[in-house]
Computed example of a mutant assay.
Amino acid sequence: MSMKLHDNVTGFQHMGFPTNDLAETVAFYEKLGFHVALRTYNEEAGEEVAFLQIGNLMLEIYENHQAPMQAGAWDHLAIDVKDIEAAYQEVCSLGLNNQKDTIHFLPFWKNGVKFFKITGPNHEVIEFSQIL
C-alpha cells in the first residue's frame, strides 16, 4: 500500500522567489536576522541561488533578472516530503499533475534534492521536495 500524501508531508520547506539583484536581497534579509544556509549555482537554469533561513522559515532566492517587482511576486511554495516518489505517484493518481512534470534532481545541499511542481487553482506553483 502506498503512503498517503498527508502521511508523507513533514511540513513547509521553503518559499521561492526570483530577484534581479541577489546580493541586495541577501543583504536585506540578513539585516532581518536571516542567515545564508546555502549559496549555490543552478547550472540548468543559469541562476545564482541563496537559501536564507531564520528559525524554521526558509527562503529560496534566485537571481534570474525576471522579478516582477510587485506584491505577490513569490514563485513557489515548497512542501517537504519523506518520499518524493510516493508523493509523485499520489499527486498523479489524484489527477493533480497539471504541469505534466516529472521528478527533477538538483545537486543542492549535501546529497541533492528531488522535486516536482504542480499548479494550484489560483495559478500558484506548489513544489513537492525531498532533500536527500
Rank of each mutant, 00 (worst) to 15 (best):
T40Y: 01
L77M: 07
Q99R: 15
I61A: 06
M58P: 04
H14W: 11
Q130S: 02
K110C: 05
A78D: 02
Q70M: 06
A67K: 01
W74A: 14
F12E: 02
I103V: 13
I61L: 13
M1K: 09
Y29S: 03
E43G: 06
D7T: 07
L22W: 12
P121D: 02
A78V: 04
A50R: 01
K114T: 14
A87P: 11
T25C: 04
A27Q: 14
Q130L: 05
P18E: 02
Q99V: 03
K31H: 04
H123R: 14
Q66D: 13
V26N: 00
A37I: 08
D83W: 06
F28D: 05
L5D: 05
K114S: 15
Q99N: 07
Q13R: 12
V91E: 12
F105K: 07
C92H: 08
L132Y: 13
N111D: 15
D83I: 11
L57D: 14
I61C: 07
V125F: 10
A71T: 10
F116E: 00
E47M: 11
H14E: 10
I131E: 10
L94S: 11
Y62P: 03
T19Q: 09
G46V: 00
M69C: 15
Y62L: 08
A27V: 00
V125S: 10
P107G: 04
S2L: 14
T10C: 08
N64M: 02
H6S: 15
F128L: 03
A67M: 11
N56V: 09
N122C: 09
L94V: 03
N64K: 05
Y41F: 09
V36T: 03
K31F: 05
I54Q: 12
G72V: 02
Y88I: 06
Y29T: 03
D7Y: 11
T19S: 07
E90D: 11
W74D: 14
G33P: 02
V81F: 01
H14N: 02
D21N: 06
I126F: 14
V125N: 13
L132C: 04
T102H: 15
K4Y: 15
H14I: 12
A37P: 02
A86Q: 06
A45I: 00
E127A: 10
F115A: 02
L57V: 14
G95H: 00
F28M: 12
Q130N: 04
L96V: 00
T19W: 10
G11K: 03
A50H: 09
F28G: 04
F28L: 08
K110M: 02
F115E: 07
L22V: 12
D101S: 15
M3V: 14
L32M: 10
F17I: 08
L22P: 03
K114G: 11
Q66V: 04
N97C: 13
L32V: 05
H104R: 11
M15D: 11
L96F: 08
M3Y: 07
E47Q: 14
L106V: 08
G16W: 06
A45P: 11
L132G: 08
G16D: 04
Y88D: 10
I84H: 07
H104I: 07
P68D: 08
T19P: 09
M3G: 03
A86T: 03
V49C: 05
R39M: 05
H35C: 12
E48R: 07
A45T: 10
E24S: 04
T119M: 15
H35M: 15
E60R: 07
N8E: 14
